[in-house]
Amino acid sequence: MSKLYNAVINVADKFVPNHLRPLWMHPAGPKTVFFWAPMFKWGLVIAGFSDLVRRPVELLNMRQTATIAMTGLVWSRYSLVIIPKNWNLFSVNLFVAITQGVQFIRAYNYQLTHRDEN
């Protein structure tokens, strides 16, 4: 698999414009897993934004949203202490923490206002 990947990268190298070379050659750039793993994680952020609009508050699990928000914060911190600093990893995890934090607040407020009904 790595031979195929390297062949694709070698072909792509020829088409990268000069002004994008610094990004392309960066230790956490598109030639590495350090770029692609956070890129795919943006799917969690998109799902979180979708849930903010579509998921009824009574179906939210406070433990789950709190856990995902906390892991977003932990990984945000981690992305700033590793070498090379991975700003893409930082931003995706910050957005995961924010979206899940908002979901947690929604669920908490729902629990407070409907405590007497249960």
Rank of each mutant, 00 (worst) to 15 (best):
S2N: 06
L4T: 09
Y5T: 15
Y5P: 03
N6C: 09
V11K: 13
D13E: 11
P17D: 07
N18W: 11
H19G: 02
L20R: 06
R21I: 08
W24N: 05
H26S: 12
H26N: 14
P27I: 15
P27M: 13
P30L: 02
K31E: 11
T32F: 01
T32D: 01
V33P: 03
F34V: 05
F34P: 00
W36Q: 06
W36S: 04
A37C: 04
F40D: 02
K41M: 10
W42E: 06
I46A: 15
F49Y: 08
D51H: 06
L52N: 07
E58T: 04
E58V: 04
L59P: 04
L59W: 14
L59N: 15
L60M: 14
N61R: 01
M62V: 08
Q64G: 07
Q64Y: 13
I68E: 10
A69G: 14
W75A: 04
Y78P: 00
Y78G: 05
S79L: 06
L80G: 15
V81W: 06
I82E: 15
I83N: 11
W87H: 02
N88P: 03
L89V: 04
N93C: 02
F95E: 11
V96P: 02
V96Y: 01
A97E: 03
I98K: 05
Q100W: 11
Q100L: 00
G101Y: 07
V102I: 14
R106A: 05
N109T: 02
N109F: 06
N109H: 09
N109C: 05
Y110T: 06
Y110V: 06
Y110S: 08
Q111G: 05
L112D: 02
L112P: 02
L112H: 09
E117I: 10
E117T: 13
N118V: 13
